[in-house]
């Protein structure tokens, strides 16, 4: 496609991004508002941030949320990478259609259904609800996102490299860890980051599957949001946005670095071959 900026393209992009970013920008700006009222600007202040640190319940919830996200993202990445390998490399096997169905359905499944069904499972098997039930629930729905991310990378990767390793006597497991994994590593990292942030954000599934012992940050924010807009929620939201933005920027920088290094290696290999 002939690519250049025309007035139409620029307008479309500017308007689209304005729609996406202005609400977030307003939220961030008003977290620094001295006044408690949303529409009145009372001067610059960081007092709402200071107040957050003293709110022990909120800090506890944040700590639980981070732990849940870390453990569930790790499980989801391992299982999701295996699932991606199954989808791309294993060819046909009995039950493959069901398998790919179970990978893609959770991507669009309404959260209320996933949450309710997992809760009823945990009740049926008498599993004590709390921290670990949220971890299991999050690992399940985020592994499907992880599988899709890794699968995209595996599909456009030259499988002859793997065949070469195996011809040279590497075992399938050795090939995976020494050849495949280093090549797909950026996608595995982004799969982990995606699973981590999805878990961090989730309100509905966590509300269904938790017990009285574990309250996550989104649950805490939700119960406060229902009472109205306060600068304190703006402040905690701003921290979460900053956290995610920095993570995404680092991840995309790393991917860029990796792909330019791969490009350089490929050129060197081409030059050597000629």
């Amino acid at each position: 496609m002939n690519t250049r900026f025309t007035w139409f393209n620029v307008t479309a992009i500017v308007l689209g991004f304005a729609f996406l970013y202005i609400p977030i920008l307003i939220l961030v700006i008003y977290s620094f508002n001295e006044s408690k009222l949303v529409t009145v600007w009372g001067g610059f202040s960081t007092k709402w941030y200071a107040g957050l640190l003293e709110n022990e319940q909120l800090m506890d919830a944040a700590w639980i949320t981070l732990q849940v996200a870390f453990i569930s993202a790790t499980i989801a990445t391992v299982l999701g990478t295996m699932a991606a390998l199954v989808l791309v490399r294993m060819g046909r096997f009995p039950g493959r259609t069901l398998f790919s169905g179970m990978i893609f359905a959770p991507l669009v499944m309404p959260e209320v259904i996933t949450g309710l069904s997992l809760l009823l499972l945990f009740v049926a098997i008498n599993f004590d609800r709390g921290f670990w039930t949220i971890v299991l629930a999050h690992a399940t729905f985020t592994m499907c996102f992880a599988a899709v991310v890794v699968q995209a990378r595996l599909t456009d990767f030259d499988s002859r490299v793997e065949e070469a390793a195996m011809d040279l006597g590497a075992s399938p497991v050795g090939t995976f860890f020494q050849v495949t994994l280093p090549i797909i590593a950026p996608s595995v990292i982004s799969a982990w980051l995606l699973a981590f942030t999805l878990s961090l954000d989730d309100l509905v599934i966590a509300s269904f599957t938790t017990g009285p012992s574990a309250t996550t940050l989104p649950m805490k924010i939700y119960s406060q949001v229902r009472l109205g807009v306060t600068p304190e929620i703006n402040a905690i939201s701003t921290i979460m946005i900053a956290f995610v933005t920095v993570g995404v920027l680092i991840a995309s920088y790393m991917t860029k670095l990796q792909s330019s290094r791969m490009e350089r290696d490929r050129r060197a290999a081409d030059a050597a071959a000629n």
């Binding site: 991004f17 996406l20 970013y21 609400p23 977030i24 307003i26 939220l27 008003y30 949303v38 529409t39 995606l194 942030t197 961090l200 954000d201 309100l203 989104p218 924010i221 939700y222 949001v225 807009v229 929620i233 939201s237 979460m240 946005i241 995610v244 933005t245 993570g247 995404v248």
Partner: peptide, 26 residues
């Protein structure tokens, strides 16, 4: 820049609109 908002919390993005849309909102 299209993906970035998708990574930030759904709940927070919905919350952001309350301050804009309500009767005494922006």
């Amino acid at each position: 820049f299209v993906i970035l908002p998708f990574w930030t919390s759904f709940l927070i993005r919905v919350y952001a609109w309350i301050g804009i849309l309500k009767n005494e909102g922006l």
